[in-house]
Design a protein around this nucleic acid. Sequence first.
DNA 1: AGGAGTTTGTGAACGTGCGAACAAACTCGG
DNA 2: CCGAGTTTGTTCGCACGTTCACAAACTCCT
Lengths: 250, 250
Amino acid sequence: MSGARIPEATVARLPVYLRALNAMHEAGTTTCSSLELAQAAGVNSAKLRKDLSHLGSYGTRGVGYDVGYLRYQIAREIGLTQDWPVVVVGIGNLGHALANYSGFSSRGFRTVALLDGDGTRLGEHVAGLRIRGFDDLDEVVAEHGVVIGVIATPASGAQEVADRMVATGIRSILNFAPTILTVPEGVDVRRVDLSSELQILAYHEQRKSGGERGLPASVAHELAEAVDDVAAVAAPSTEQTAGQAAGARR
Amino acid sequence: MSGARIPEATVARLPVYLRALNAMHEAGTTTCSSLELAQAAGVNSAKLRKDLSHLGSYGTRGVGYDVGYLRYQIAREIGLTQDWPVVVVGIGNLGHALANYSGFSSRGFRTVALLDGDGTRLGEHVAGLRIRGFDDLDEVVAEHGVVIGVIATPASGAQEVADRMVATGIRSILNFAPTILTVPEGVDVRRVDLSSELQILAYHEQRKSGGERGLPASVAHELAEAVDDVAAVAAPSTEQTAGQAAGARR
DNA sequence: AGGAGTTTGTGAACGTGCGAACAAACTCGG
DNA sequence: CCGAGTTTGTTCGCACGTTCACAAACTCCT
Ligand SMILES: NC(=O)c1ccc[n+]([C@@H]2O[C@H](COP(=O)([O-])OP(=O)(O)OC[C@H]3O[C@@H](n4cnc5c(N)ncnc54)[C@H](O)[C@@H]3O)[C@@H](O)[C@H]2O)c1
Ligand SMILES: NC(=O)c1ccc[n+]([C@@H]2O[C@H](COP(=O)([O-])OP(=O)(O)OC[C@H]3O[C@@H](n4cnc5c(N)ncnc54)[C@H](O)[C@@H]3O)[C@@H](O)[C@H]2O)c1
C-alpha cells in the first residue's frame, strides 16, 4: 500500500491536510472526522477520504482519525521526518523575505545558505546567515547535502542559476523568476508565479463585472500593432531581456 | 466564440503564453509557430493550439501566429487592456518585497495602497507609497475602485482581513498566508503557499532517492504520540496559533 | 496553375480527477 | 448480545484535461 504511487493532485493537497492537523493538534483536538478535517482544509469530504486512502487505512469507522497518528503518517509520506537543507540564490527583495521567513524552518526545511551573484552584497548578514557568493554553490551543496534549491534572481539569470544547480546535483528547484526553466529529466521544477496569479484573478474579475467584450477581431487586427506599446497591454518587462532590474530596495 | 467559457486549465496558462509572446516581441520576432511558442511556454504544442482555439482562430495555417496580434488578443481576454488597482495588506517581510516588485506594475497591475495593522509602521514609505492603517481600507477601495486585494499578514489575521475586504466590495483575493480562507460565493481566492511547494518537492525528492520506506504502521502507531514534539515532523507553527511572528526584518 | 511542403484547428481516444452513493466496520446504550 | 447510529473506505459514473493524428488551409516554387 505505502509503496504505491500517489496521484499528483493528492500530493498537492497533503501539505494542506498536514497544516490543518497541526492546527487541531495545537488546539488540543485528538480526534477528527473526515468532515471536520475536510472543512478545515477547504475540500470535499469524499475527496479527503479518497486522498487519505492512498496512504493507507489510518482511520477508524464510526470514530474518525487520530490527529497525532494521521499527522505522523502524512509527514512521513511527504518526507518531513527528516529535515531538508535548502539553498536560496538571489538575495534581493524576495530573497530577503524568504531568508527571514520562519515558516520554512518550522515545517521541515532549513535554509543553509544564501547566495548572490552581486559582489557588493557579500558579507551582509540576513537572518543569521552571511550572504555568500554564487560561486560557493558547489561547496555549500557538498557540505550540507543540499538537494533543494530556491531561485529568487531576476528572470535573466534564472536559467544559468538552474544549470549550475543541476550540475552540482540539485534535483528539486523552486523558481520564483518568471521564466520557464529547461532542466534535464529527473529534475523537478515548481514555479511560483505571482503575476500569473493576479492575471488569473483579473480574468475572472472581468467576467464578473458584466461581460463588456473587446473590439471585433477585424478592428482589433488593425489596432494590434498600434497598441503594442501601450503600457496596459504589456509594457516591456524589464527583467525578461535586460539585466536585473535592481529595484531600489529598502 | 469569444463569449464562450474558457477551461480553467487554459486560463491558468494564458499568462505564460503572454509572457513568452512579450519576450519574442522584444526580441524582434513578428511571427511564431505553435511549436516555437509551445516550447517557450514549456507545454505540448497540441495543448497550446487547443488552448488558443478557445479564444478564437487567430493563427494562419501554413504560417503560424502574428506575435503582436496574438499578444493583444490574449491580453484582452485576460483583461489587461485596462490596469487593475491592487491593495496590499500586511507590509512585513513579504509585503515590502511585493511593494518593491516592478513585475506587477509592468504587467497591468497598479499597487494603489499599502496597509498594515501595526500602528508603528504607519507613515513609513515603501516604493513611493506611504503605509496607511488597515482602517483606511474602505476609503482606499472607494477612492480607487479596487477589486483585487493581496493578503500578506500572518495566518492569524488573514481571515479577518479577508472578511473586511469582502465587506468593502473586493471580490478577488491573493492570499500568501498559510490558511484556508472562508469567503462568500462569488469571491475568488488564490492561495500562494510556499511551504506546500517545498513539501511537494520534498515528496518527489524522497521518492527519487531510492524510496527507503518509513516504519511499519504497527510500530509507527506507538511512536506517533512520542514523535509529536519532534521538530522535524511539524514543530508548532508560530503563526498558526500565536500572534504575528515578527521576524527581525532587515 | 498546380503540386509539394508547412502549420493550424479539431475530432477522437485516453487518462486523471471529482463527487455521489453505499456497504463495511466501528461505537454505544440498553 | 443486539440494534440504532456514525463514519470510513471504495465503487461507479461523469466531467475535465491531455495527447495523437489528420483534414483543411495556407505559402512557395516551378
Ligand atoms: N519582489 C517580489 O515581491 C517578487 C514577486 C514575484 C516575483 N518576483 C521575482 O523574484 C525574482 C527576484 O525578485 P526581487 O524583487 O527580489 O529582485 P531583486 O533585483 O531585488 O533581487 C535579485 C537578486 O538576485 C541577484 N542576482 C542577479 N543575477 C544573479 C545571478 N545570475 N546569480 C546569482 N544572483 C543573481 C542580484 O544581485 C539581486 O540581489 C525576480 O525574478 C522577480 O520577478 C519577485
Ligand atoms: N516572508 C516570506 O518569505 C514568506 C514566505 C511564504 C509565506 N509567507 C507568509 O506571508 C505572510 C507574511 O509574512 P511576513 O514574513 O511578511 O510576516 P511579517 O510578520 O514580517 O509581516 C506581517 C505584517 O502584517 C501586519 N499585520 C498583522 N496582522 C494584521 C492585521 N490583522 N491586519 C493588518 N495587518 C496585519 C503586521 O503588522 C506585519 O507588518 C505570513 O502569513 C507568512 O506565512 C511569508
